[in-house]
Amino acid sequence: MQAPHDILRRMNKLTPNTNQICEPWVSVDPLGEALHFLHMNGVMYTRSEFTAPWGLALPPFPNRLMFHVIMSGRCWLKVEGAEAQLLQPGDFALVPHGEGHELLSEPSVSAIKLFDLPRELVSERYEILRHGQGGAETSMICSTVRFDHPAAHQLLRLLPKFIYIESWRTPHWEWIQSTLRLMAAEARELQPGGETVITRLADILVIQAIRAWIAQDPVAQTGWLGALQDQQIGYAILLIQREPARPWTVALLADEVGMSRSAFAARFKELVGEPPMQYVARWRMNTALTWLKEGDWPLGELADRLGYQSEAAFSRAFKRFIGISPGMARRATA
């Protein structure tokens, strides 16, 4: 067993297979690094203006996350399999699995399908929706987004059906309210760069919502999330995610975190739910899938970057974990 200072020394050394030095102030917080990868892509925003009575049925958006920020008024959120939730000004609701759900002025109101309502398209990614029968007003920002990084996918799969943040009960109430006011102002008067501002503000709100859930829900202390918060197993996961091409073995990972091979393998499987080398292979393939979506990488180069000796070996592993060939994955995103 190695002393803690030996582990710290390893954290700050030259990272293998790169030319970058891990400076002492670079985060070695695995959970924080997972949250770091929650950068939104493919964002679509809707400024919704409702007058009671009204009801909106949103369809499922596979592989998307949806959120709603209440600017004024109130509404009910209904997600199948969960209790209806009242949302009021300043509240933030996150539906992380892209499930269909309803927003209603009252729980008894019938909902109209989103795509049956007229919408004003302001830009390619921004629209305005007005609906209702002239009663009490409710204003909100609604959004669908996707996350492409495999660490984001791993995290989002563990989240509940929806996350609700009642802003005035959080210790961060003031800055959350300031963020919401700025987002509302940008939504009302969309200026050059306004979509980018809204996206960055939404990044902050989504991460804060997930942080709040992790801090409050005992479920977040188990499984992969629990493993990230374990000093040694969490650091091993961080190493795998930072250096997927490194020729990892169970013995090498155990040595990096100062554990015996057998103790490391048993603890990793207990916390993560699969053996270390299966996790390594799965992470590599999810990384490859992200790279296939982002660029026109030759398969041979992808295989080399992920530590495979041949394109054929890489393709077999990719199909085993992803379910389709690399070529099919590339064509699906074209």
Rank of each mutant, 00 (worst) to 15 (best):
E166I: 08
H101L: 12
S260F: 05
R330N: 04
S262E: 15
M140L: 15
T196G: 14
W224K: 06
L159D: 04
A317M: 05
R10C: 10
P62M: 05
I214T: 10
A288W: 00
F92S: 04
T196H: 13
R267I: 07
Q133R: 11
P276L: 02
P96N: 03
V109F: 14
E137S: 10
P4N: 11
F268V: 04
E124N: 12
G134N: 02
C22Q: 14
F92H: 09
I7L: 14
A84H: 04
V219H: 09
M66Q: 15
W54Y: 04
T196C: 09
Q278V: 08
F147N: 05
L14A: 12
F321L: 08
W173K: 14
R188H: 12
L8T: 12
A281L: 00
I198N: 06
R188D: 15
Q241R: 10
L35M: 14
I233E: 09
R9Q: 13
A136D: 15
F50M: 10
W213A: 08
I204R: 10
W175N: 11
A187P: 02
R316I: 05
P171H: 06
P59C: 09
S108C: 04
A220H: 01
L58D: 08
I7M: 14
L225W: 06
L271G: 02
T222R: 15
P298W: 00
D91W: 06
H149R: 03
R47L: 13
R10K: 15
P60M: 11
Q216A: 15
G295T: 06
E301A: 10
M183Y: 05
L8Q: 12
A265H: 03
H131I: 07
G327L: 09
W76V: 12
S167G: 08
G234K: 01
G307S: 00
Q241C: 04
Q221V: 06
L306E: 00
S260I: 01
P247W: 02
L35I: 13
L114Q: 13
H101C: 15
E166P: 03
W76R: 08
L158V: 09
A185N: 07
R211G: 08
E195S: 03
M285F: 01
F37R: 11
W224G: 05
M140C: 14
E256V: 02
S178K: 09
I7G: 10
Y279E: 01
E99C: 07
F67P: 01
A111V: 07
D148L: 12
I7T: 11
R64I: 04
T138E: 07
C22M: 12
A82S: 14
A111F: 01
W168S: 11
L182D: 10
E83D: 10
P276K: 01
E301W: 00
Q177R: 13
H101E: 15
L121T: 14
P4V: 08
G42Q: 09
E189P: 02
L86M: 11
R331G: 05
T179E: 11
Q133F: 06
Q221M: 08
W54R: 00
T170C: 03
Q177K: 13
L56K: 01
